[in-house]
């Protein structure tokens, strides 16, 4: 059974939901959730690109068809990179909370010009 373009559509949808969540929420915590969700969408996109219908896992396989192992490496790396980014933004959120008592990013308007 092939799924056609459905995985692409799902990945795109998840990506957009995450971006919408990040851009529309005023709370830094929710924005971080949004970023994480959209990075899951990209990971699904990567996985779909490397998927070969009916193929096995990319372990040693003589004569057997396997899925693309490269995208799995990409996804692992991307997860680590996003993790680092999210950790830093959350630590900034902690600083903001200590300073002001909330994480509302729409109040960040001290710098202008």
């Amino acid at each position: 059974m092939t799924l056609g373009n459905l995985p692409y559509a799902v990945a795109f949808l998840i990506f957009l939901v995450g971006i919408y969540c990040a851009l529309s929420s005023r709370n830094l915590m929710k924005a971080v959730f949004g970023f994480s969700i959209s990075s899951y969408g990209i990971n699904i996109l990567f996985t779909q690109i490397g998927y070969v219908s009916g193929a096995g896992a990319p372990i040693y396989a003589a004569g057997r068809e396997v899925v693309d192992p490269l995208v799995q490496a990409f996804v692992l790396t991307a997860i680590v990179v996003e993790f680092g980014l999210m950790m830093y933004i959350l630590s900034l959120g902690v600083r903001m909370y200590e300073e002001r008592g909330d994480m509302d990013i729409s109040l960040l308007r001290r710098l202008k010009g």
């Binding site: 971006i19 990040a22 830094l28 959209s38 830093y88 933004i89 903001m96 960040l108 710098l111």
Partner: peptide, 18 residues
């Protein structure tokens, strides 16, 4: 001021990296 600049920078940077 630095925390604000860093939040803005990190926010836009994360969006563009995605």
């Amino acid at each position: 001021g630095q925390i604000e600049a860093s939040v803005k920078y990190a926010f836009l940077g994360t969006l563009s990296s995605l």
